[in-house]
Design a protein around this nucleic acid. Sequence first.
DNA 1: CTTCGTCCCGTGAACGTTCACGGAGACGCT
DNA 2: AGCGTCTCCGTGAACGTTCACGGGACGAAG
Lengths: 335, 335
Amino acid sequence: MGVGRITIEDVAAAAGVSRQTVTRAMNGMPEISARTRELVLRTAAELGYRPSRFASNLAARRKSRSVGLVLGSLRNPYYTELAAELLDVVAPRGWHVLMASREQGDDVELVAALSGQADAIVGYFTGDETALVTAARGVPLIQVERAATVPGLHAVVLDFDAAIEALLGELRDRGARRFGLIESGGPPGEEGAGAYRPTRRRRAYERFADSDSAGRVVVADESIRGGADGLARLRAAHPGVDTVLVFNDLMAMGAMQQAQLDGVAVPGDLRVVGVDGLSLGAVMTPPLSTLSIDRRAVATEAADIVGTLLDRAEPPPHPPVVRTVTPRPLWRESA
Amino acid sequence: MGVGRITIEDVAAAAGVSRQTVTRAMNGMPEISARTRELVLRTAAELGYRPSRFASNLAARRKSRSVGLVLGSLRNPYYTELAAELLDVVAPRGWHVLMASREQGDDVELVAALSGQADAIVGYFTGDETALVTAARGVPLIQVERAATVPGLHAVVLDFDAAIEALLGELRDRGARRFGLIESGGPPGEEGAGAYRPTRRRRAYERFADSDSAGRVVVADESIRGGADGLARLRAAHPGVDTVLVFNDLMAMGAMQQAQLDGVAVPGDLRVVGVDGLSLGAVMTPPLSTLSIDRRAVATEAADIVGTLLDRAEPPPHPPVVRTVTPRPLWRESA
DNA sequence: CTTCGTCCCGTGAACGTTCACGGAGACGCT
DNA sequence: AGCGTCTCCGTGAACGTTCACGGGACGAAG
């Protein structure tokens, strides 16, 4: 002894009692006198004893569940509000939530790291689906936004086709004619790091906009400053645009700020519409219109899939579980 | 068998191999033929086998560390940006982060729940310190903002005394004379739930403001709408105020919005200053001035304390470890 | 035919707790 | 004295995995 970890046995020996007595003292159980409890607690503190949570959970046969959450960024309120909703949904059931952000690593790496600590992982993934599943080592994966195509992967898909079609229609009703899109080039800071891949939002836009508008797309960094930069480039390349759709609200806020700097009146000269539905958009001047994603619904569906998967006794759920949430326009004064 | 959990032994039996072979297959280890690996993986999938992460971590003697993070709210970007910083700091070391929000439970309950899953817990606590420490069951607690007074509790304190004294001074230099404060009444939704206790920010304000100003305080909900409401009440009660200090940036944004609604020019008629230093404050019109808290520094110090505490061999750190971070004014156009 | 090496695979023994027992002593009552 | 009832405490045996070994089968080399 001396080397290695301080175990319950060390404490027991030092206090002159048995393992079980130490357990009773540490966990506040009955069948122990106040005297010895005090003694044990003190010697435990003196030795710097910290119980092994792994041994403890194993022996106690606890069903403590924790779900990993892989987000695009913790600096974008959309993601963190989603996290908030998920926490609201699972905390009452006693589940824990492990956080990870794609800002600090590859999809697959994150999943691999989380797989040892979580019973299920939900998140925004962009990596190869097969690689993700193998990295998960058997823990169920629930993908948000993207559809799942391989076994072992389930999904809460966001129906941007329906949403953007509806949005463009309503915008036309409001007089919009010449659209433009500020598209995401990936997480902030990854400027040109990975290969750019068109997002589902862009695809939907190109599909449902008129052919002229479909060509008016600029790719920008997924941040406030990226949105500002995007708007400047979009207006430079396509001066006639009267309505700009932005990949997300954060970028849209940057775009609105830029418009203001350039002396462009919103919505008089230019309509701006974001995606996400951040409550902070309401305090902008003018308040930001947006394609709102029901984060509570996403969280609920995801948690539900996790529950189904984990409680299932023996048979594996072969056809991937898929739920759908459709974003809806939320009109405020910027459009 | 049949009842209870599916163990590695079940898979081994079903595949006609031994435990160790199953381990090798599941973890992608060598010393196994492609044939049997395939077989084992398939039967594992068919049985719906998911390894016990507790048993696994215990047997592998892994030093996987995870720190719990207790925040006031996940809907306030200040907290989530702090989380982002912490993640940035600890992720490279391979540590995990467990999230919890005071919106869904008492301090002490959260700590108790987390103590089984985390090796250390850092957070914004408001509850009784002794109760917190006992709930932690030996896992180290690091408290942010508040100073620690009991053994087992450590702290990263925010020096609002120094910060607010400096802030008020600089505001006076800019012509501010009649101050007012919008103070927090606790987390959103807890309207009148717990007993209101003056925050350290309020205490500092009352100490360093002139005696007239010290009396101009309203308590409001810790949210955008709370800030708006607070400003309305403050102006109604004290019409002559020319400068308002707000508990945090989120509330300050609400206050600015309310000022705009009421036709009060900022900063012409009224200066508004928040606390936190949110980057989103920069996109407000006018951009929000604020007492900026260096979240990176807070996260770094907290992680450092955790590291020190966990790597220490035997002796317990008796004098609580304390680090200090001082907020600094960040001037933008609202003041 | 022996010897050595390589490739697979299996068997005890950990890992550090908690659970289900069982038992010693103190005390009160008949 | 005998018996029952508390209160407090200790001893094997789990929990489900991985680690350190050891060993058989097979082919190549001597």
